[in-house]
Nucleic acid binder design. Structure first.
Lengths: 170, 170
DNA sequence: CCGCTTTACTTTAAGCTTCAAACATCGGCT
DNA sequence: AGCCGATGTTTGAAGCTTAAAGTAAAGCGG
């Protein structure tokens, strides 16, 4: 019987009126923390890529995708994998072609599509950057234990599934 | 004495030639997964903010900071809290002033600084958006258990500390 | 009080990003 | 063959973002 007042208090506090119809504070805090972690790492990687290799993060990311697919990728492929809009990729590729890091060539099977590939220069530069990059990332996660890394990996896997369900309702 | 060979093997594997000087693959995969989660959520939030409220994510984020600080914030405060460059905030605030969502006023104690505050319109609109936003986030994390949320929170807390040490060497 | 460093902000150039609209091509269907 | 919805790409406008350089004011140590 003396449990009830506690529940009421929780819903009745001033937080209720000012916050919204439900208390999803925990998830919100979780999201903000997730965003903070990503922003911190991303910012540092961006800074170091520019400082050490004079390259932007989007250029690096695009080259990373191409490095994983030696047969080449279409603009749409790249767009899906990088999770950015397709119009974005057009300009990014334009600039990478101009600097000699990638090539565009017409697809042989689809006259709408173009296949983008790393040039030798592009691949060589990417390898150098990727080496350094891998070390930076390792450093940033260095304080996590082996189990910490595994646990985080698993939890983020579940998060990804959860987000996918909520967004694509699939 | 028989420890030595193991260390050599570690550096001598074929991963060495193709990957870099150490195998930090796990951390790299973890980072990519973290980035994927954030990108998915951020993209969906951006899309919904635009669709339902015709507002951009940076504008929403800035208003969120101001909502948390009713006394107002200087441009530098905002810049630090949002973890974006200071030049960025100038333009963002300009546009928010133009649309009547925030006010700039000179600081009374520091003639260099300006205090930015939400207007009544800004606060009202932010509240509406924040309500919806909180629900969206809750939905996206809905498949995580209570413990999952707590564990993730804790692990990301440790990650944040680790990143901070690696970046600011402090 | 002067000079120096730091802090607050603005400006510019270059690049990134999205969205929406336009266009070409593809593939299936009749 | 011809239509039609889906897919691949480009374009343009608006806005976001950073880095770097510049101005102004604050604060500190002589």
């Amino acid at each position: 019987m003396d449990r009830l007042p506690d529940d009421i208090v929780q819903l009745d506090a001033e937080t209720f009126a000012s916050e919204g119809s439900q208390h999803h504070r925990e998830e919100l805090r979780l999201w903000l923390r997730l965003l903070t972690c990503t922003t911190m790492i991303e910012g540092e990687v961006r800074r170091r890529l520019r400082r050490d290799f004079d390259v932007t993060l989007p250029r690096f990311d695009l080259m990373a995708q191409l490095d994983k697919s030696p047969a080449g990728l279409t603009l749409s492929d790249i767009s899906k994998r990088m999770m950015v809009s397709n119009g974005n990729i057009t300009g990014l590729v334009d600039r990478l072609v101009a600097s000699g890091h990638v090539t565009r060539r017409a697809s042989e099977t689809d006259r709408r599509a173009q296949v983008i590939r790393l040039t030798e220069l592009g691949r060589a530069e990417f390898r150098r950057m990727a080496d350094a990059h891998e070390g930076w990332i390792a450093d940033m996660f260095a304080e996590l234990t082996r189990d910490g890394v595994d646990d985080l990996m698993a939890l983020l896997g579940r998060t990804k599934d959860s987000v996918r369900k909520a967004c694509c309702n699939a």
